[in-house]
Amino acid sequence: MTGDRYFGAAVLAITGFYLYGASTIPTGFLPDPVGSRTFPYILGGLGFLCGFLILLRPDDPPVWPSSSIVLKLALAAAIMYGFAETLQPLGFILPSAVTTALLSYLIAPNILHSLIAGGGLSVGLYVILKHGLGLGLSAFWF
């Protein structure tokens, strides 16, 4: 129940914001019986209704992971965010070596394994993606 109470409330808030956003859509110049706002209004309205119904009749709460696993998932997301932000300035190899090593350590805490994963995956995947498949990646920042 806890899960769906928050979820329903979030849906109501977001669809409310969405409806506000839809109301600010400028009108086009061409004659059009439907216009730019109608469809977003319908979607926002239906979404609002769904949020309301979810609040009224929440499902059984999902099995949330333990706090240590939540922490692990949050760390994984943070590591991926770091990768997303550093890939462009630093090139593929260095950020991916760090990212894969950290993710690997997060999954199985073994320093040797994580070093193998970091070194092997970063160089190996760079060669495969860049030279095997021709992806537009640069190796380093220079």
Partner: peptide
Amino acid sequence: PPWILLPGITMVAFG
């Protein structure tokens, strides 16, 4: 092993 599989999938997806 997952410690090599999951980071690998992540890299392919992002790359």
